[in-house]
Computed example of a mutant assay.
Amino acid sequence: MIDIKNLRKHYDEDAVFITAHAAERFRLRNIKAKDIRTAVATGEIIEQYPCDYPYPSCLILGVTKENRYIHVVISDEGSASRIITAYFPDPAKWSNDYKTRKEDI
């Protein structure tokens, strides 16, 4: 299981990477690097993906400095992390607390 303290440590050590593809998606979604960093620094892990390849990852629920909920998917690669994606959760797909997925009807 990924421990959020390790992810925060990776940020402190400047060992968090963002792929060019992910950076482009953030730009299209109007998500800034500080939004992602704030989410990791103050958020909580709401889902774990231990079987993700090539490294385990997790979903973090955080709040931006502008008080918007944000989801961040981040890997734990041992001595570093990689931001896989980030997005503002869709209220139609998530419960009011943005921690639980709504069931498909």
Rank of each mutant, 00 (worst) to 15 (best):
I2E: 14
I2M: 14
I4M: 13
R8F: 03
R8W: 08
R8H: 09
K9E: 15
H10R: 09
Y11R: 03
D12W: 07
D12R: 14
D12V: 04
D14A: 05
D14K: 11
V16A: 13
V16T: 15
V16N: 15
V16S: 11
V16D: 14
I18P: 07
I18R: 06
I18K: 07
I18W: 05
A22D: 14
R25T: 06
R27T: 12
R29Q: 13
R29P: 07
A33L: 12
K34Y: 08
D35M: 00
I36P: 14
I36R: 10
T38A: 09
A39R: 04
A39E: 05
A41K: 15
E44H: 11
I45E: 07
I46A: 01
E47S: 05
E47N: 11
C51T: 12
C51Q: 12
D52W: 00
P54H: 04
Y55A: 15
P56C: 00
C58W: 12
V63F: 04
K65I: 06
E66P: 02
E66M: 02
E66N: 09
N67Y: 06
N67A: 05
Y69I: 01
V72H: 07
I74Y: 08
S75D: 11
D76H: 05
E77G: 13
E77D: 13
G78Y: 07
G78L: 06
G78C: 11
S81H: 01
R82I: 09
I83S: 14
I84K: 13
I84V: 15
I84Y: 15
T85S: 15
A86D: 12
A86L: 10
P89R: 00
P89C: 01
P89G: 03
D90T: 03
P91D: 02
K93C: 04
W94M: 01
W94K: 02
S95E: 02
Y98G: 03
K99T: 02
K99P: 01
T100D: 03
T100M: 02
T100I: 05
T100H: 05
R101E: 08
E103P: 05
